[in-house]
Structures are given as C-alpha cells and as structure tokens.
Amino acid sequence: MQKCQKCQNPATLHITEVLGESQFEELHLCEQCANKYLYEPQQKANLGKGGGDLGKEGEEGLLGQAECPECGVKFVEFRNTGRLGCPHDYQAFREELMPLLENIHGETKHCGKTPRRFPQTREHQSELTQLRNRLKQAVTKEDYEEAAKVRDLIKHLEEA
C-alpha cells in the first residue's frame, strides 16, 4: 500500500490539486495528515509547491531555524547580523559554519595558542554543560530544591 507523503502511515486519501490549466498535483495522505492539509491553508501552500522545491525549501527553512540550546539564537539571526550569540553556537551551528569558515579562512581547524589552563578548563566545560542540562530538567520538573543545588554547583565551578 502507498505510504502517506507526510508520515509513515498508509495513504487513504488521494487528492488532486488543480493548480492551473492542465497542471495538476497529486497528493497521497493518511487521514490525519489530510485533515491537517485540508483545514490549514498555510500548510496547503507549502505542500502545493511539489517535490523538488519542497525538499529545498524545507531544508533551508530548517537550517535557518536551527537554534542554539544555550542562548536561543537562531542561525538565521546570525545570517542577518553577522554576530553569533554565545560560544556554544560554534557547536550548535557546526555544520552550517564549516563552509563559511572555509570560505573566510581557507581552513577550519585552529592552530596556534592554547590557554595554559585549558585541560582543566575543558573538564570543567563538559561538567558545566552536564550541570546546565540537569538544571534545565529540574526546572521543567519544577524540582526547585534540586535546581537550587545544581545552580550552586555551577556557580562554584565557574568561579573555580
């Protein structure tokens, strides 16, 4: 059985869009996706663009929407301002930044001075990232006692 174009479920509805004179577009969707498609006009416009375009548009859109979990800056914002949001962006947007760095510098790997305290700092860094994740989880679970504890640990490490 044919699969839905938007998810993995079997396609039960087959829609033919009339785009213009002798221009048609066929869509094969499951009931759920069809409902969405039929009742959400903005989605319709998106889907209506057809195979190749959809892929490309979707990808570009996704790229721009990529967001740094640390500072919340989106890649598209960096594109507009030319400034990153925080040091973590280099990891969060690693894939997107690589071609750019190659373009600017002709290289993508640092070669040169390293902070003397770096090995120690690096340990702290990964520990800090772990702690920050724990803090986030604690806040989501509204476990404020745990959150306060983790926050103190972070503060302690940062000041070390």
Partner: peptide, 17 residues
C-alpha cells in the same frame, strides 16, 4: 576556547587566534 576552533569570537572572521 575550543580545541577545534580556538578562541571563540562573536564574529567568525576573528575565530581561531
């Protein structure tokens, strides 16, 4: 600082050293 990209800067034109 990252081992891969060096000193991390607000603008990628300055990253590295």
């Amino acid at each position: 600082f990252s081992e891969e990209f060096g000193y991390l800067t607000a603008c990628p034109t300055n990253v590295g050293t």
